[in-house]
Amino acid sequence: MSTTDSSAPISSAPKKTFLERFLLVELLKGMWLTLKYTFRPKVTVQYPLERESVHPNYRGILRVDESTCIGCYLCEKICPDKCIHLEAERGYTKGKGGKYATYFYIDHARCLFCGLCEEVCPVDSIYHSNEYEAAVYNRADAVHDLRILDSGHDIIHYER
């Protein structure tokens, strides 16, 4: 670590001649640059009318595949803010034996979207979908039960 002598005023700001000051050269240069951008194609997306697709790796709203879940509680255990709740029972359902989830709730209002549950799931039953429109009118709607988790919720699409 070394300090330079701060008493000597060395300015890094560009020096301008009188003519440059008088003719506003730097202002005109900037104006010319922004003018050129006026004729280039737009990069913005008109969101509710047009949607950009997200990458498959994107961590969106959580979904659970009911038929593969083995009710091992690992996702409930790893969740940092305890937004996953499930109950499992031993029995025979949907053509397979062993444990299955009888109820499964995920509170998306608390979810961090960190992807830890997806990582620990031994049968890839719980996963982050690519849906990202999770806004709801009241808090109770943010809690998804097994039916919604399995088949997805209705997204109200904006129409003109």
Binding site: V54, H55, N57, Y58, R59, L112, C114, G115, E119, H128
Partner: peptide, 23 residues
């Protein structure tokens, strides 16, 4: 979004390396 899974709150790394390989 493509490599880490999220845009702002990435939770990108884990002790020992990355969560998943780069796409």
């Amino acid at each position: 979004e493509a490599a880490l899974g999220d845009r702002l709150t990435t939770s990108a790394f884990k002790p020992g390396g990355l969560r998943r390989d780069l796409p």
